[in-house]
Design a protein around this nucleic acid. Sequence first.
DNA 1: TACTTGTCCTGTCATGCCGTCAGCTTACCG
DNA 2: CGGTAAGCTGACGGCATGACAGGACAAGTA
Lengths: 215, 215
Amino acid sequence: MTGQVRTVDGRVAGRRGQATRQKLLDCLSEMLSSSPYRDVKVIDVARKAGTSPATFYQYFPDVEGAVLEIAEQMAAEGAGLTDVLAKRSWVGKSGWQAAQELVDGFLDFWRKNDAILRVVDLGAAEGDKRFYKIRMKILNSVTNSLTDTVKELQSKGKVDKDVSAAAMAGSLVAMLAAVASHQKGFQSWGVKQAELKPNLALLVHLGITGKKPTK
Amino acid sequence: MTGQVRTVDGRVAGRRGQATRQKLLDCLSEMLSSSPYRDVKVIDVARKAGTSPATFYQYFPDVEGAVLEIAEQMAAEGAGLTDVLAKRSWVGKSGWQAAQELVDGFLDFWRKNDAILRVVDLGAAEGDKRFYKIRMKILNSVTNSLTDTVKELQSKGKVDKDVSAAAMAGSLVAMLAAVASHQKGFQSWGVKQAELKPNLALLVHLGITGKKPTK
DNA sequence: TACTTGTCCTGTCATGCCGTCAGCTTACCG
DNA sequence: CGGTAAGCTGACGGCATGACAGGACAAGTA
């Protein structure tokens, strides 16, 4: 899939090299969780990995490059977010359940990868196409799936034709991503997870079907 | 209100000093729009302002500190976001209009201040309480207003009691903020502003009232 | 064992930014 | 005109960056 792992100067990395490379990625990942993105320095990552800055630059052009690598790995994992939605009916109780599971899956995934996702989000918002692409990769499976659902419901006459399926799906996904990345904020503001989830599910259901769920 | 503007070492800033300070803030602001947050250096800001790095450190402890200052200024401005909502009825056509105007105001405000808001969002997501507070300051007026609306509708029996007003309002506001900060993303993905806005308004209306709008 | 080859890592260096300080200049006031 | 405080900067030690050459190491060959 990735073909071959290569160093910056073009050599192919062997067993040992790949291990070092991965260790650097892991340490960077950890670092991103514990300190602000702006303050993450190559030298700290290298020290944490028990190696030297020069080694880091052998495998990655800069911190951004390494972050992109981590994000790619995560994106592959995140493709599974959409499994929940496959072949789901959005009519009746089944729809309410689909909405709930989508919300659950999303929040979990985000909580697990919040540090990287933060950086990816920033990069995308700043207009960096590489980050933007990865963000798409993660969100697209869900967005596309939801878009299809809306279109299908529209063709059956169950949803107004003047709804833009893509815009609706995109907005809902953006909402999920935003709420997920500010989960802590909600909590310290007095909103509990237990309240948050059903409300998000309700909004998703309302947005997709245009109707209140039958619970 | 702010009392007196002071330098880092305690002196009070006079006319000239305040002008320099403001110029630094303006240049920083511009810089944030044109290059990634991670790459904004004090020396560049100072150069752009026609002064020296030492001067920067006279007025701000670091880049973050200056960003907070800009964000404060913006937050004051952003308090006006809620004007649109004051004394609005969410019943009938008026509700649909309120939703539309809210979305309009939000997207405009975000587009105007996207660079700072990006950084504030990042800081908040990273758990920095100072950034989190400012984010609240900007969003709270809207969130609270929406929360009140939902509660009012609940007391009149027009909205289900099991909806958490705060969670719903918070989710909607988070959605608006997220979509706003990825406006460019939506566009390059094939979703036009003209489609986006009504869909967001629809979602807001659905979330607040639980019903489709009468247009 | 000695030699070769290619991978892997680091010491070192020039460069550039950070953050601080002493000290110079400028403005204001009696 | 002299005093005082504001305003600014040159210069410096410290540290991160990013490049390079060369040493360490493993594996294969004879």
